Simulated scan of single mutants.
Amino acid sequence: MELSSDRIKLTAFDQSDFDLFVELSMCPKVMEHVYTPLTLEQATAAFEAKSRPWTPDCDTWLCFGINARASGEKLGNIGIKITDHEAKIAETGFMIKPTAQGKGFAGEALGLVKAYVFNHLKLNKLTATCAAANTGSYKLLEKSGFLREGCLKQNTLINNRYVDDYLYGLCRSDI
């Protein structure tokens, strides 16, 4: 499966995405607002879990590598997980390598995922959770039409420190 825009294409995870996924998952700077950096063993296991075959009735993540169309450079990853099949709700999350941040790639990838979720999967809502201190992520979500629906105090443990998380949602009726 491939989703594409003028500058990027999203392709379902395959072995070519392994190195960047592991690098991002183990990087303290990238993981600062996501979760405690993983060990190589943990990152390998997470990649294997996220690159299994996916169908819309799965309870697992559908992960895409974000690739520059012109050069094929690996830029990051984005995924969706249907969290409530009956209510037609999915969650999304993304990671972009530091050298590709601030260039609009995450916004383009999120736009492609939104279109896939609402137009192809016919879901009703897309949600996202991000650390309250992750300014880049929450500004991107808000710019992409997501509404902040709440704040969960001390919701996530990152590097032995509890952090607050913002909850975001985007309903089909809001696009």
Score class of each variant (00 low, 15 high):
1 M>D: 05
1 M>A: 13
2 E>V: 13
3 L>A: 04
4 S>A: 15
5 S>G: 08
6 D>I: 11
6 D>N: 14
7 R>I: 06
12 A>G: 04
18 F>T: 03
19 D>R: 11
20 L>V: 06
20 L>I: 08
25 S>I: 03
32 E>M: 08
32 E>K: 14
38 L>F: 11
40 L>F: 13
40 L>H: 14
41 E>F: 05
42 Q>L: 10
46 A>D: 14
49 A>T: 15
54 W>H: 13
69 R>C: 15
69 R>F: 03
70 A>H: 13
73 E>I: 10
75 L>W: 04
76 G>C: 04
78 I>V: 15
79 G>V: 07
82 I>Q: 01
85 H>A: 13
86 E>T: 15
87 A>L: 12
87 A>R: 15
88 K>V: 01
91 E>P: 04
92 T>G: 12
93 G>Y: 03
93 G>V: 01
93 G>N: 03
95 M>Y: 04
106 A>Y: 02
107 G>I: 05
110 L>G: 11
112 L>R: 09
112 L>A: 07
113 V>T: 08
113 V>W: 01
113 V>N: 05
116 Y>Q: 04
119 N>G: 07
120 H>F: 10
120 H>M: 11
121 L>A: 01
123 L>S: 04
123 L>Q: 01
125 K>E: 09
125 K>P: 03
127 T>A: 12
127 T>W: 00
128 A>W: 00
131 A>H: 12
133 A>Y: 06
137 S>E: 02
137 S>M: 09
138 Y>L: 00
139 K>P: 09
140 L>V: 08
143 K>N: 12
146 F>W: 06
148 R>P: 03
149 E>Y: 05
154 Q>G: 13
154 Q>H: 08
156 T>W: 00
156 T>H: 05
158 I>W: 04
159 N>M: 06
159 N>L: 01
159 N>I: 05
160 N>A: 08
162 Y>S: 07
162 Y>Q: 07
165 D>M: 10
170 L>D: 06
172 R>A: 07
172 R>C: 03
174 D>Q: 13
